[in-house]
Design a protein around this nucleic acid. Sequence first.
DNA 1: GCTTGTGAAGACCTTCACAGCA
DNA 2: TGCTGTGAAGGTCTTCACAAGC
Lengths: 232, 232
Amino acid sequence: MVRTQRASQDIPDIVVSRLPLYLQALTSLQEQGMAVIKSHELAAVVQATPAQIRKDFSYFGKFGKQGMGYSVERLLSEIRLILGLDRTWNLAIVGLGRVGRALVSYRGFLHQGFHIVAAFDQSPKVIGKKVGRLVVQDMAYLQEALKTQGVDIGVVAVPVAEAQKVVNQLVQCGIKGILNYAPTTPQVPPGVQLRTVDPVPSLQSMTFYLKEASTAKVRAKRRSRPKGRAFP
Amino acid sequence: MVRTQRASQDIPDIVVSRLPLYLQALTSLQEQGMAVIKSHELAAVVQATPAQIRKDFSYFGKFGKQGMGYSVERLLSEIRLILGLDRTWNLAIVGLGRVGRALVSYRGFLHQGFHIVAAFDQSPKVIGKKVGRLVVQDMAYLQEALKTQGVDIGVVAVPVAEAQKVVNQLVQCGIKGILNYAPTTPQVPPGVQLRTVDPVPSLQSMTFYLKEASTAKVRAKRRSRPKGRAFP
DNA sequence: GCTTGTGAAGACCTTCACAGCA
DNA sequence: TGCTGTGAAGGTCTTCACAAGC
């Protein structure tokens, strides 16, 4: 087997986590009509350094031309391919309380190729009801339905107290990717990808700095900002 | 002035970003009746190493007892103090589309001391209407209302195309903390804290690994998991 | 000229390993 | 004995700086 790309084991997780941000910025730049971009330009938009941009891309190949920069279209298609976004991914939502229902109607998923194809809850009050285009199914049919519908990723939108149980059930069903909206850190076995989405920790780390700024004189933070960034 | 704590400049951002997770875990453990905890126990819950837990705490003081561990209550109150959570913080939401309305009714904020006290939109269709307990105000009154209501943090829930403009307006009004729900990376001047909440980049970095797992044999990832973690 | 791609250097963070103390 | 707190070591990521090439 010919290996044209570096093995994923050699690529730092942090590099992978930046690729979606490049994708986001490049998509927007392409819509604005930009066809070619230089590392320092992309760096300004995503608030990184030109060296970091070039180094990150270099893990996957040589996408640029010396003296010229990168083709935006080429970069977009390379990054999509690297991330596995050259296909759609099917999601199932577990838990249709406030958060779950909001997620079903959230358009951000669909536009990026993430299709919500199933919804589950344990409450008889919700089972059988429609939420958006979906009929809420009983958790008892989880395994069967996940297989039938070809679900790749489970979205956990249940209360904290039930999050671990639901995560275990999804793992049991063979799900390898979980997006968790419960404000907790569930345990998952090796090989299962878990991402927790919770605005509260973000706010709580923010207040650390806001507090400092209001009690002490605001001083330049160490490494507070990459060089060369521009704020209009 | 006596300085009992290390200057915030000397504390790595990454350490600050972990404190909310410790808080989350400790709160849950306290509810379960745990009064004392050892670094390796907390490490198991948050999926870190005992050394990291101890090192992180050591930036702020000596909270433990040799041979004993840490008092959960003491830790909770120290971390809350460090993060500035010994008070409530006032939020204002800008943009009352689907996301904004979902956020107004989200209870996770209130329970953690983040009070949504104002809501703004630019659309005449929404201005004056009630969303939850709040009457949606015109963006024209932004500066005045933010001052009057003592708003600390702005929550941006507008479409991508307007996000930078709204961020600029908030910054102009003297807001130092912004929680951004638009799928973009707005520019902010130094001294303004920005956190972007977007599930899509999380999903997109997840698919990188899911793709690998399905196309290649799943191999143990380098540094995939801290030592000593336990999965039940 | 200008910009990429990349080894090497440097900065930063994590982990080790043990002194110190309950 | 057991566990914390912490310098020191080790490892990873970022940045530098320049050769290569358009």
